[in-house]
Design a protein around this nucleic acid. Structure first.
Lengths: 129, 129
DNA sequence: GTGGTCTGGTCACCTACGGTAACCAGAGTT
DNA sequence: AACTCTGGTTACCGTAGGTGACCAGACCAC
């Protein structure tokens, strides 16, 4: 058993409710707005940079680069550069990245399922009444 | 079937990859750093404001208030105020909020499971080599 | 050889969001 | 009158994240 959070030995892997805990850092990273979408956009195949940018509407070049770098660093995607002209760069989920698809898909499905309910709740809440 | 994203009728509930799409807005909200932790901290019971603040180490009063208000607006939690002295405020997940626990728990488990792998990947990546 | 194209980036700039800490109500307690 | 408690709100500030310009570098058309 590995103790990852200072002073916390009861929870293997660390208690996400403890600040500065690695688990929480990871939760922050994968809960990141763009990471979720990149994982979904990559799916089980490979995609080029520009392809991802096109798929994920609204993402800026900077944020896509940044997100992909972070994900590469975290071992979630692999980056393959082909010295062609013009340069071709392909991204692909690693096994770890693939394993994230399940949980994230569940989240996506939840939001689609509860979309109507949330919208209604908001309208009710916002009513001056 | 409800078309929620302008020009998108193929995906019921909306395509999260379309910007401005309600599904994406919800994904942003629940993917929010603090919302995830509040859902976990509330669990299946009720909790007072100060209790949540204590459980979620590192959250500021402002962000807890803000997060809880948003969640209340989204119909994820109920807020009950008891006109005692001092004032007592209790929060509880709604059914919708409860249904979020599964997906979020999966995410939490993923991050605990892959903690080691990610840390290693980062170290390898950061090596000047 | 000069201009235009393509890709995948980087860089400066600025806004907006999140964090910090101070302050508040309002009643009870000493 | 001063101090406690809870559950906030507010001003302030720093740093993320977004925007748009610019870059490499090789190819093609003229």
């Amino acid at each position: 058993m590995v103790t990852t959070c200072a002073g916390v030995s009861a929870a293997p892997g660390g208690d996400p409710y403890q600040q500065g805990c690695p688990t929480r850092r990871i939760l922050d990273r994968i809960g990141d707005r763009w990471t979720v979408l990149v994982v979904g956009a990559l799916g089980d195949g490979t995609a080029r940079f520009s392809e991802l940018k096109r798929r994920i509407e609204g993402i800026s070049q900077k944020m896509l680069t940044q997100t992909l770098r972070e994900m590469e660093r975290d071992g979630l995607v692999t980056r393959t550069m082909y010295a062609q002209v013009p340069v071709r760069v392909e991204y692909q989920l690693t096994d770890a990245g693939m394993s994230l698809r399940g949980p994230l898909k569940a989240l996506e499905e939840w939001s689609i399922e509860h979309l109507g309910m949330v919208m209604t709740a908001q309208q009710v809440y916002d009513q001056p009444s």
